[in-house]
Design a protein around this nucleic acid. Structure first.
Lengths: 252, 252
DNA sequence: CAGTGGTCTAGACCACCTC
DNA sequence: AGGTGGTCTAGACCACTGA
């Protein structure tokens, strides 16, 4: 495959049109990931092969891969190869769950689907998901247990177009995380998310689900999840009971 | 300055003793930052000079600096140089404040010191700060306003040894953030922090400070802040009122 | 052993900033 | 014009993995 070293200096933005070669390679690799040329979990061609394919040096390919690794899209394993990141690999993709037990003891996390239905998107859900108001959305309620304790009660809004075959049966058949299910069953890969946290009082429904008193303080996490190209694919409101757990965050 | 390319293969861990050259350069630069050879805000010697100084190629120095840049210890500015990161630069170091107004309108953040006193460290504070129980700690209470709204009420515990001259007068003289004050006045540079969030009910003191009803839900953020060498330098409990603000976090 | 990623080098050239 | 960081190359060698 050929590449274009000289950027056409767009007349509107004369000097800003410069785009380094390795950035172009980033774009090409990302595109291949997006269209599924390399599936989650499998190895990419070696750096040397990619260098030939894109007509650049190995160093340039390396720099491109560096960027995709730090964006968590790829994983390097020395001596083995470079792999497409996947939510099925617990090591690499438990990073969207920020809840941890207070005492530090690791506990099994279990996923309890409660309900799944269709509805028309309201104004705010449509806005977050980039849909027309009234578009079809799928709503999932689920409980997350950490050890024995109910820790999170989530209401999850998904674009109907991407998840049309999602049902309670599908949810119940999922052995691991939801994102892993989205990836393997619907080809939707969650890349990054923006989360907003607030403290609220438990309403009746969430109090019951989390087995706390109505009015008890809960952590409300509202999350928009994105896939390639910053396309939103999930809007989620999660109520977290922080009696035995906390939300952890690293600043730096 | 000379460098050692061949690692003495420690007899206890034969094969694990390999340490790449650029990692050693990272260590040397970090050490210079730590002992204050280059102060916050000033430029480092050029990459070429550092290459000569450490007896390595410029590429190796670059790779070392890459790592320190992504750890937020250094900042590159093309055409100008590489600079020591500083909390005084609002661009680079507002990153410890995760609170933002709900409507997205940027508002001025103001810092209102309320109290400052000495005490002996209790068991948990001592543990978080790595001190002996009973060691001298300085406790600061302050209010953070975002626009006109009281947004955060913080109780901050500092090791007495590092901040011995901290008083209300010093706090009142600070024009910008606390971490900026720590850096310029006490030579203590906050590098990273671990934060744990919970939802709690407002007690009388924090309710009054934040002008919310007693029992209202608040976001409690407990933070340990570290400097070079993962040494803890601050333990903080902050109560956030999330009526007009939220805590934002990027996952991915 | 061969294949992979990881390190290191030396040198050329480019983009950006300042004087 | 002269300095800085930023890109790109080609090649050598090292560390890790697995057959």
């Amino acid at each position: 495959m050929l590449h274009i070293k000289i950027m056409s200096p767009s007349t509107t933005t004369p000097a800003l049109a410069f785009r380094p070669l390795y950035k172009q390679v980033v774009g090409l690799i990302t595109r291949s990931l997006e269209i599924g040329e390399w599936k989650p979990g499998v190895a990419l061609p070696s750096e040397a092969e990619l260098a030939v394919r894109y007509g650049v040096s190995q160093g340039t390919v390396r720099k491109a891969i560096d960027e995709l690794v730090s964006a968590n899209l790829l994983i390097r394993r020395q001596g083995k190869g470079t792999f497409v990141a996947t939510h099925s690999d617990p090591d690499s993709f438990a990073r969207f769950l920020c809840l941890a037990p207070n005492d530090g003891e690791p506990r099994p996390v279990s996923n309890v689907p409660l309900a799944c239905w269709r509805a028309k998107a309201g104004a705010d859900v449509a806005r977050h998901l980039g849909l027309e108001p009234g578009a079809l959305v799928i709503i999932v309620r689920r409980l997350l247990r950490i050890g024995e304790d109910p820790a999170a009660f989530d209401e999850i809004y998904l674009p109907g177009g991407l998840f049309s075959e999602l049902t309670m049966d599908v949810l119940n058949s999922a052995e691991s995380s939801l994102y892993s299910l989205f990836e393997s069953r619907f080809g939707v890969r969650a890349i990054r998310a923006n989360e907003r946290l607030r403290a609220v009082s438990a309403d009746k429904v969430s109090a019951e689900a989390l087995q706390v008193a109505e009015g008890a303080p809960l952590l409300l996490a509202e999350r928009v999840t994105f896939t390639y190209g910053d396309k939103p694919v999930e809007w989620r409101r999660g109520f977290y009971s922080t009696r035995n757990c906390h939300y952890h965050n690293e600043l730096g």
